[in-house]
Computed example of a mutant assay.
Amino acid sequence: MKKVLFALVIVMFAAGSAFAHSPLCDCFDNGDGTVTCEGGFSDGSSASGVKMHVKDSAGKVLIEGKMNEDSEYTFNKPSVDYMVQFDAGEGHSVEVNGKDIVE
C-alpha cells in the first residue's frame, strides 16, 4: 500500500510540474528610434495579449501596450532612462533595463 501511495504522489507531483512555465522576454533596439520586445513562456505558450509597460527611472509609466498576435511589442524609444516590464500577472513578470537593450 505504501508503494502505491508513493507512486501516486510522484505522479501528481510530475503532473503539476508539467504545467509550470516561466515568462521570457527579450528586447532589441531596431536602430530607427524604436524598440521591439519578443515574449513567451518556457513551455512554448504564446505571450499574445500580455501587458507591456515602459517606465522611467522613477517608475512612472511612459508607454503602455500589449504583445501582439506574434508575441511582439514595438514602441518608440524614450529619450530618458527607462525599463520595460513584461507583465503576465503575479509571478510572471520580467523587467528589462533600457541600458541592456542594444541593436
Rank of each mutant, 00 (worst) to 15 (best):
M12H: 03
M12P: 04
M12A: 15
F13D: 01
A15N: 04
G16L: 14
G16D: 06
G16A: 13
G16F: 13
S17H: 00
S17Q: 11
S17Y: 08
S17D: 00
A18V: 10
A18C: 11
A18T: 06
F19A: 13
F19S: 13
F19E: 07
A20K: 13
H21S: 14
H21R: 15
H21G: 02
H21P: 04
H21C: 08
P23S: 05
P23Y: 07
P23L: 07
P23H: 04
L24R: 12
L24G: 01
L24I: 14
L24T: 12
C25H: 05
C25V: 13
C25N: 11
D26Q: 14
D26K: 15
D26P: 00
C27T: 04
C27G: 05
C27Q: 04
C27M: 06
C27E: 00
C27Y: 04
F28P: 00
F28N: 13
F28Q: 13
F28C: 10
D29R: 03
D29I: 04
D29Y: 05
N30V: 06
N30W: 00
N30T: 12
N30G: 09
G31E: 01
G31R: 04
G31K: 03
D32M: 10
D32Q: 07
D32W: 07
G33R: 02
G33N: 08
G33T: 09
G33A: 11
T34W: 10
T34A: 06
T34C: 08
V35N: 03
V35E: 06
V35W: 05
V35I: 15
V35R: 01
V35Q: 04
T36P: 11
C37S: 07
E38T: 15
E38R: 14
G39M: 05
G39T: 02
G39N: 06
G39W: 01
G40M: 05
G40V: 05
F41H: 05
F41P: 02
S42P: 05
S42R: 10
S42Y: 05
D43Y: 03
D43P: 10
D43A: 14
D43M: 10
G44E: 04
S45Q: 13
S45D: 15
S45I: 00
S45A: 15
S46W: 02
S46P: 02
S46M: 07
A47N: 01
A47M: 03
A47W: 01
G49E: 04
V50F: 07
V50T: 12
V50R: 03
V50E: 03
K51F: 12
K51P: 00
M52D: 02
M52I: 12
M52Q: 09
M52C: 11
H53L: 15
H53S: 13
H53G: 00
H53N: 12
H53M: 14
H53Q: 14
H53K: 15
V54S: 02
V54R: 03
K55T: 11
K55I: 12
